[in-house]
Amino acid sequence: MQGLHRAFAVFAVGFLITHVIMQIMRGRVGASDAVLPFSGSAGFAVGLGTIASDLMILVAATGAFRGRFVGMRWPWMWRMLHTLAYVSWPVSIVHGLTAGRPGAGWVTMCYVGSLVGVALAMLVRLVVTRGPKDGPAAVRPANIGRKAEQIRVDDVFDEEFWVTLRKEVRR
């Protein structure tokens, strides 16, 4: 699934860059409109598209440099930045529906279908990751009867944790 996610991300960014270059070449927007939202006379819908594209480029960069975030002081920063995709995507949907000429019926239906598909995928992910766990928690026989140790925050994220996380990121 991770490989599929990355492949779709690369295709999406490629199509995004192609879309922006084509709009600049056709003279519909200026080069500054492609980077700075609401900088020219392109309109509100194009400004939304610029915001969405800037956010997606940031999301793609955080995905490409995920391994660098592991060694940072704040490893949670990656997830926070990568989550901007959830902001970028609906903004890009509004951009697509409002910029340029009105879309044909099948185009609007594709937008609605993608909204429904992503909403269902998010629902499945929430149920799978937050749903009830089957059976009681496993207790290792070696730990039966032992007194629980006090755990400090520094002990939770020890060097072994980071080594394991780095290996996972590299896979």
Score class of each variant (00 low, 15 high):
1 M>A: 13
3 G>N: 14
4 L>D: 11
5 H>Q: 14
9 A>G: 10
13 V>K: 02
13 V>D: 04
13 V>G: 03
15 F>Y: 13
15 F>D: 08
17 I>K: 04
19 H>F: 07
19 H>Q: 12
25 M>L: 13
26 R>L: 13
27 G>I: 04
28 R>Y: 02
28 R>N: 10
30 G>D: 01
33 D>M: 00
40 G>P: 03
40 G>W: 00
41 S>A: 09
41 S>C: 05
42 A>Q: 00
42 A>T: 01
43 G>W: 01
48 L>I: 01
50 T>C: 02
51 I>G: 02
51 I>T: 00
52 A>C: 05
56 M>K: 00
57 I>Y: 04
58 L>R: 03
59 V>I: 14
62 T>N: 05
62 T>W: 00
63 G>N: 04
63 G>Y: 04
64 A>V: 11
64 A>I: 11
67 G>I: 06
67 G>W: 06
74 W>M: 08
79 R>C: 07
79 R>P: 03
81 L>S: 03
88 S>N: 04
88 S>K: 03
89 W>Q: 14
90 P>Y: 08
90 P>T: 04
93 I>R: 03
95 H>L: 00
96 G>Q: 02
96 G>N: 03
101 R>E: 12
104 A>N: 11
106 W>V: 05
108 T>Y: 07
109 M>N: 12
112 V>N: 06
114 S>F: 13
115 L>Y: 12
116 V>D: 06
118 V>H: 08
119 A>R: 14
120 L>H: 11
123 L>V: 10
124 V>K: 12
125 R>K: 13
126 L>P: 02
127 V>C: 05
133 K>D: 09
135 G>N: 06
139 V>G: 06
139 V>C: 14
141 P>H: 06
143 N>A: 11
143 N>L: 13
148 A>H: 10
148 A>T: 12
148 A>D: 12
149 E>M: 11
150 Q>K: 12
152 R>M: 13
153 V>I: 08
153 V>W: 13
155 D>W: 09
155 D>K: 06
156 V>K: 05
158 D>C: 12
160 E>Q: 09
163 V>C: 08
163 V>W: 11
164 T>R: 06
166 R>D: 14
168 E>K: 13
